[in-house]
Amino acid sequence: MSEVFKSIKDVEIHDVKWIDARLSLQESDAGRKNFEEGHIKGALYWDLEDDLSDMTKNTGRHPLPDKQTLTELFRKSGLELDDRILIYDDGGSPFAARAWWILQYGGFKNSFIISEGFRALTEMGVPISGKAEVPNRSSVDPVWDETIFAPREFIEQTVEGKTGNVLLDARSAERYRGEVEPIDPIAGHIPGALNFDWERLKKDGSFNLDADVGQQLSQVVQHDDEVVVYCGSGVTAAPLFAMLKQNGYNNVKLYVGSYSDWISREVIEVEKG
């Protein structure tokens, strides 16, 4: 098993770099305001849309920034490949996992998600600050891990049965079946995909690190399966990706464009039910 999530009970806070990824989808600037009011001392703030997405692209609702842009993010954040990096949001949210996946993609393999979130960290007595620090710029060269990235073309090949991968949809069962669709213009799922609602990964507002989550995952996908996870816009699929890795799934990719990218092309094929 790969350790991806860390409980605050097991966190060593010395010689680490912190990333604050808090966000509210209902109030876009709430995360940054919360950061300015108080954050883990020394933490940097990474915003979902400003830092972890390129909203000028048309490849889904939260497209991945290009490598040059991500490299600049890593460098201005003062990161080095061997840094120990801890990422938090409000707990049980997908935003720290999105930041973590991008770090993994860039080769920062010593990075982890705090499963409980910011409030629990403060209750444990981790020092907080209202002052935003400017780190020393690094000259890091990312080592891109293409094995965890699935482009649109790979998904097309998977639907055609050419890759042997299993598609796993992280949205709710109702959205997966096409019974409701509150965001995207077309309801349904990518043909052939299975479903595991990412909300099932949580327990009492935190990510559930107990063995029963692994047991539930194994009822849908097997450990030797090659899995591609997706959701609506590539955000809530990130914690599903992370939990699969946490539970010993070695061959997992993320389709960042996800369903919103899949249905954006002229030729669209979806399934319902």
Rank of each mutant, 00 (worst) to 15 (best):
A173D: 06
A132K: 07
N195P: 13
S138Y: 10
R200Y: 12
D210K: 15
K203W: 05
R137M: 05
R200S: 11
V126I: 15
G125S: 06
V143M: 13
Y176L: 05
V126E: 00
I190G: 00
P142Y: 14
T122D: 09
V143H: 13
P135W: 07
L167G: 00
E156I: 15
K162G: 09
F207L: 05
Y176M: 08
E146Y: 14
S139C: 13
E153H: 01
E146C: 04
K109E: 11
F108A: 04
E133M: 01
V143Y: 04
G205D: 05
I183P: 02
R175W: 04
S172V: 09
I128G: 00
A170H: 05
S138I: 13
R171N: 03
R152K: 15
V134C: 00
G117T: 02
R137L: 14
S172D: 03
P182V: 11
P151G: 01
V140Y: 00
S206T: 11
N195K: 08
I128S: 02
K202S: 10
F118W: 06
S172G: 11
I148V: 13
L167D: 04
E153G: 10
R152T: 07
F196W: 11
R119H: 07
D210F: 09
N165H: 10
D197L: 05
E146A: 13
I113Q: 03
P151N: 12
K162E: 15
G188K: 02
V126S: 00
G188H: 03
T163Q: 06
G164R: 09
V166S: 05
N208V: 15
